[in-house]
């Protein structure tokens, strides 16, 4: 007993050291970016700004939030993230449950038909024409519907569903429960961790997505925040390409921001909300969700 717990102690110490090292390595780039976003643009270009802003400024953030329409863009992003993720998780989980059951007739054909789509993509032009016919162009639904199912996520969820002992389902059936009831009342509560993980993946996808907005919408009312910010950043770096002389006559104070620091501020403005939400999802990643149900 003693020897073992001594071993455990060594293991714990080792573990804490490794984890701390990983933590330092992973937080560093994020911290450097955060510091850069608070640094004066021109000064940042001289390099060496890592641990603390050398010339502190809020200009980068002022610039990001200069156009008040950004708040509407946040609204669009939040809406699509909430609606899109909820629909995605629900729909993907439903299909995954069906697919997880070995009893399902045609299962092997279905999975091949599904996986085939992971590898072959028709390209933008046919997709655009399809969306046009479906009336998805310039429509909020273009964010939600084409992303509501993913074969990859379905497979992940399916593999979790399969790990649930079949006897749980069988006994529910004997009790007279239908497939939908089993899915909703039995399976979903048991697999919260994977659903939380899928929700996180999909939520972050929605939060960061802008290509669909760029390609399939033209209305400002549908512009998500990432597209909004991407434009500010690219604009400030393209602007000097042809109008260089105009830039050089600007007063010195205008050089508070640079494309680099603006990019960092933008990254922070879009990442911060995810960082706030994460702890709420994290509670699903705790141990032992399964046990309660099997016993009960």
């Amino acid at each position: 007993m003693n020897i073992r717990s001594k071993g455990d102690k060594w293991f714990d110490t080792f573990n804490i050291i490794v984890m701390t090292a990983i933590m330092v390595l992973t937080i560093a780039p994020f911290w450097f970016a955060l510091v850069g976003s608070f640094n004066q643009g021109l000064d940042y270009m001289r390099g060496g700004v890592y641990f603390w802003p050398r010339t502190f400024t809020l200009s980068n953030y002022f610039s990001v939030f200069a156009d008040q329409t950004i708040f509407h863009a946040y609204f669009v992003t939040i809406s699509r993230t909430l609606a899109g993720t909820a629909l995605h998780v629900a729909f993907t989980a439903l299909v995954a449950y069906g697919m997880s059951r070995r009893a399902l007739a045609g299962r092997n054909v279905y999975i091949v038909v599904m996986m085939f789509t992971m590898f072959f993509y028709g390209g933008l032009v046919p997709t655009y024409l399809l969306y046009k016919d479906l009336g998805l162009l310039n429509n909020f639904l273009v964010y939600i519907i084409p992303t509501m199912f993913s074969v990859w996520d379905m497979i992940i969820v399916m593999s979790f569903f399969r790990s649930i002992p079949e006897q749980i389902i069988e006994s529910a059936k004997i009790d007279g429960a239908g497939e939908y009831r089993i899915f909703l009342q039995l399976i979903l509560p048991l697999t919260k961790p994977v659903l939380a993980a899928i929700a996180l993946f999909n939520g972050v996808y929605h939060w960061n997505a802008y290509t669909d907005a760029m390609l399939f919408t033209t209305k400002e009312a549908l512009e998500p925040v990432q597209l909004f910010l991407m434009r500010i950043v690219t604009d400030s770096s393209v602007a000097t390409k042809f109008g260089e002389q105009a830039a050089s006559v600007m007063p010195e104070e205008a050089k508070q921001i640079s494309p680099e620091t603006l990019k960092l501020a933008m990254m922070m403005a879009t990442t911060a909300p995810i960082l706030v939400i994460y702890p709420f999802l994290q509670k699903y990643f705790v141990k032992g969700v399964l046990i309660g149900s099997v016993k009960g």
Binding site: M99, L104, V113
Partner: peptide
């Protein structure tokens, strides 16, 4: 039928 009806929407989608 119940089980199949869960999978078909996914196939239709694809």
């Amino acid at each position: 039928f119940a089980l199949q009806s869960m999978v078909w929407p996914g196939l239709l989608f694809l």
